[in-house]
């Protein structure tokens, strides 16, 4: 098994070693499906627009709750020293942890699959939009997850890591909201638009949600995710000095 694979295996199992994992997944499913079902029955629309539309806000709470333990827990117990003296690169340890958290999120997402299956049986949903929506959910989650693992490293305490992660994700969300960027433009001319274009995630996410697959949107999510992972790796190396 690869080095990152060994870490992945342990971290993924760790999620399910505690009842919190199951609570997280149940909360994820109940809230998302509940939020989705209400308009679904009221408006009789055979699509998942509302479900995916809710995600950027909902994941701001959910993802940092998943990532908060990733480094903070190791730093609080003595295991951080164990991990950082294993004969593997710190970036391998980080990737193992990152993908374990992603796998946990994917398990939660898989739990929502009955929705599109039901839709397909009841009506004719736009499958392109459903596929685009899931891809967007994955990329969005991946970005928040990278932000979350980075902020988890900065702090020793899980709750602080959760709050910091939430604030960072919220900032990424906010700068992409037109009303916010317009306000910032009002303070410093053009700066709000710049932030929105460079970092704002909503335009990219909404494009995917419509089922439009463009390189620019993929590059945004993957690129910004990579930036936070690299920041995390730099922090891991820098901490020695």
């Amino acid at each position: 098994m690869s080095n990152a694979g060994v870490i992945f295996r342990r971290e993924f199992a760790a999620y399910f070693n505690s009842p919190i994992a199951y609570i997280f997944i149940i909360v994820f499913l109940v809230l998302n499906c509940g939020l989705f079902m209400t308009p679904f029955f009221l408006a009789q629309l055979a699509d998942m627009r509302d479900f995916f539309g809710n995600l950027p806000l909902f994941l701001i709470f959910f993802i940092p709750a998943v990532t908060m333990r990733l480094w903070a827990e190791d730093k609080r117990s003595g295991t951080f020293e164990l991990l950082m003296t294993l004969p593997m690169k710190s970036s391998e340890v980080m990737l193992g942890k990152y993908f374990a958290a992603m796998a946990f999120y994917v398990v939660a997402l898989l739990g929502t699959l009955p929705i599109p299956i039901m839709l397909a049986m009841l009506g004719k949903p736009d499958l392109g939009a459903v596929f685009g929506g899931y891809l967007g959910a994955l990329l969005l989650g991946g970005l928040y997850m990278a932000v979350g693992i980075f902020t988890s490293g900065l702090l020793r305490d899980q709750i602080s890591a959760f709050i910091l992660g939430m604030l960072a994700c919220f900032a990424l969300f906010l700068v992409g909201v037109p009303a916010v960027s317009a306000t910032i433009d009002g303070w410093v001319g053009g700066f709000g638009s710049f932030l929105q274009n460079a970092f704002g995630l909503m335009p990219h996410y909404q494009a995917l949600q419509r089922g439009v697959l463009e390189l620019g949107d993929l590059a945004y999510f993957l690129g910004l995710t990579a930036v936070f992972l690299v920041l995390n790796a730099v922090w891991l190396e820098g901490r020695k000095y």
């Binding site: 080095n3 199992a13 117990s77 003595g78 294993l86």
Partner: peptide, 23 residues
């Protein structure tokens, strides 16, 4: 290390297997 480097959510054998594989 001076603080126990243990994952308390694991069994002893799981933990030792994990460290063994990681090494």
């Amino acid at each position: 290390p001076e603080n126990h480097p243990l994952y308390v959510d694991m069994m002893v054998h799981e933990y030792l297997q994990f460290v063994g594989r990681a090494r």
